[in-house]
């Protein structure tokens, strides 16, 4: 390990919200996080990795020695053995982290209703009830979940609700500010958020996740002869083609996770991929990171939570 940097962050915000419609709210929000970023060098190989964990109380980051140590060991194994991947199409298993980023980037942003205002094509395309994904797929946004995406009341004073964006593969809801809910004649969802006092609230996610399935991790792996497991990510995006830039990834051979591989990007068509989700584990995790967050146009970085089960996708481009 040639370089490391540890960061501790804590924040407590007390917000008061008043409106001419009679809102009179005072509530608090707090978060705490720890991040260890490190660069490893092994011969000619270099590898930057991190441990990052956040929550709402100090308990979330207490007694981490073993967990941090294990992550560093995993990184060491990775740098010692990772080989370049042979580019191509592979069945891919996404970790809860990768699945959460995929849900956020590939579908969550498209559920933000401000993108639909005054746009007939979008309204037609995003009709509630339309089938958009595999029948086992449900994606939810919920500001009530604990973690850095916890938003008890949004910046227009609306209480957070659980919103199914996709339920059993069908478009089920979308995220709203007061403006978009009124324009589309739908219910408020508590998703109007401003990154800070300098900006106006716009429609943003809170904690977005894929709901769990019924498989064990072993069952999810079984049947994959030649595949890729994406363990951790550097970042992801979600236009018509989504991208996931893995940090740690591994080959899957004959239903077993094997050697680590270096991958620059995993891509796929959003809608094709939503329909190619063919397995979800019962094991499920919501994640909160101490730094970074979501960016939308000029407003970044907004803390959000995300997560899901382990997710198997039939085929993705791996480069």
């Amino acid at each position: 390990m040639k370089f490391w940097r540890g960061q501790y962050i804590d924040q407590k915000v007390v917000k008061s919200f008043f409106s001419s419609k009679g809102a009179d709210l005072t509530f608090d929000y707090q978060r705490v996080g720890f991040r260890l970023l490190y660069q490893m060098v092994c011969g000619e190989e270099q590898f930057m990795d991190r441990f990052d964990l956040a929550g709402n109380t100090l308990d979330a980051i207490k007694d981490l020695d073993e967990e941090v140590g294990q992550t560093v060991k995993t990184s060491e194994e990775f740098i010692r053995h990772a080989k370049p991947v042979t580019p191509g199409k592979y069945p891919v298993i996404l970790s809860p982290e990768a699945a959460g980023v995929f849900a956020h980037e590939s579908f969550g942003h498209k559920s933000e209703a401000d993108f639909m205002l005054g746009d007939k094509t979008m309204m037609e395309e995003w009709k509630i009830g339309r089938k958009v994904g595999s029948e086992i797929l449900s994606i939810i946004d919920d500001g009530n979940k604990p973690g850095v995406g916890h938003v008890a009341f949004d910046d227009e004073g609306t209480k957070a609700v659980e919103t199914y964006l996709i339920r059993d593969g069908c478009l089920s809801g979308r995220l709203h500010s007061a403006e978009t809910a009124a324009a589309l004649e739908e219910e408020l969802t508590g998703n109007a958020r401003a990154v800070n006092f300098e900006y106006e609230p716009v429609v943003r996610m809170t904690t977005t996740f894929i709901s769990p399935g019924e498989l064990s991790f072993e069952e999810l792996l079984s049947g994959i002869k030649d595949g890729v497991y994406v363990d951790s990510l550097n970042h992801g995006t979600g236009m018509s083609t989504f991208t996931l830039a893995p940090n740690r990834a591994y080959l899957i051979r004959e239903g077993k996770i094997t050697e680590p591989v270096k991958i620059s990007v995993v891509t796929g068509s959003v809608f094709q991929t939503l329909n190619e989700i063919e397995g979800l584990t019962e094991d499920f995790k919501l994640l909160s990171f101490s730094l970074g967050g979501c960016g939308k146009m000029e407003q970044f970085s907004l803390p959000v939570g995300f997560g899901g089960p382990f997710v198997r996708v039939r085929s993705l481009n791996v480069h």
Binding site: E45, Q46, F47, H235, T241, F242, T243, K262, S264, V265
Partner: peptide, 11 residues
């Protein structure tokens, strides 16, 4: 949008 370099410089 979304591409990256690997640690050893592949883009």
């Amino acid at each position: 949008s979304g591409g990256d370099f690997t640690q050893d410089g592949h883009f």
